[in-house]
């Protein structure tokens, strides 16, 4: 009973946070609503005895990714464009309904929901969640795990190359312009 009430609270807040994140007029409010969503998802994980995932959820999503989002928001301070929403809301609703339908369809038609893995709740509780997840990740699922890290590595290389090439280009003419400006400023100083 308590677990169900808690689940309802966490699930409700997750959905509400997500709705506010999409609908809020202010981007900073959107980010904060997303923070609420992330923290409540962590709560759902804890209800499922998955403490490790819950902690990682907060550390990675709330503590790192969303802080970076906020960082960028504050650095560039983008103006809210209401037009953007109005132009695309029909497409958005259509896509949303399609995706929702697909998810419900997948959930009811296949055996994914009724399928149980080798890690039953009792086994996980017995082994300890962190140990169980470590065992599973580094034995049965080592290939997908390593693939995921490789993909992330590729993304990081991409970011570094993009940032690096931009700097190289701006060094040429940009540097010279800066130098001449500095010379002009020096001249002006000397003249005055």
């Amino acid at each position: 009973m308590t677990a169900q009430l808690l689940f309802l609270y966490f699930a409700g807040m997750t959905v509400m946070g997500a709705v506010v994140a999409v609908a809020a007029p202010n981007l900073v409010y959107s980010a904060l609503a997303l923070l609420v969503t992330f923290i409540h998802i962590a709560g759902i994980y804890i209800l499922m005895n998955a403490e490790f995932i819950a902690a990682v959820q907060i550390i990675v999503y709330a503590g790192a990714i969303l802080v970076l989002y906020l960082f960028v928001l504050m650095l560039f301070n983008p103006k809210q464009e209401n037009l953007y929403m109005h132009k695309q809301y029909k497409v958005g609703i259509f896509l949303g309904v399609v995706v929702l339908f697909l998810m419900l369809f997948a959930g009811y038609r296949t055996e994914i929901l009724s399928q149980g893995g080798s890690y039953t709740p009792e086994l996980v509780e017995d082994l300890g969640h962190t140990r169980a997840i470590g065992n599973a990740l580094f034995t049965d699922f080592i290939f997908p795990f390593e693939m995921a890290s490789l993909i992330l590595l590729v993304a990081m290389f991409g970011a570094i190359i993009l940032a690096g090439s931009g700097r190289r280009r701006s060094k040429g003419p940009g540097g010279r312009v800066d130098l001449s400006r500095r010379k002009a400023a020096k001249k002006a100083l000397a003249d005055s």
């Binding site: 962590a42 403490e51 490790f52 902690a55 990682v56 907060i58 550390i59 709330a62 503590g63 802080v67």
Partner: peptide, 8 residues
Amino acid sequence: LYVLAFAS
């Protein structure tokens, strides 16, 4: 991890 999570 709990402490690290809230510190972040």
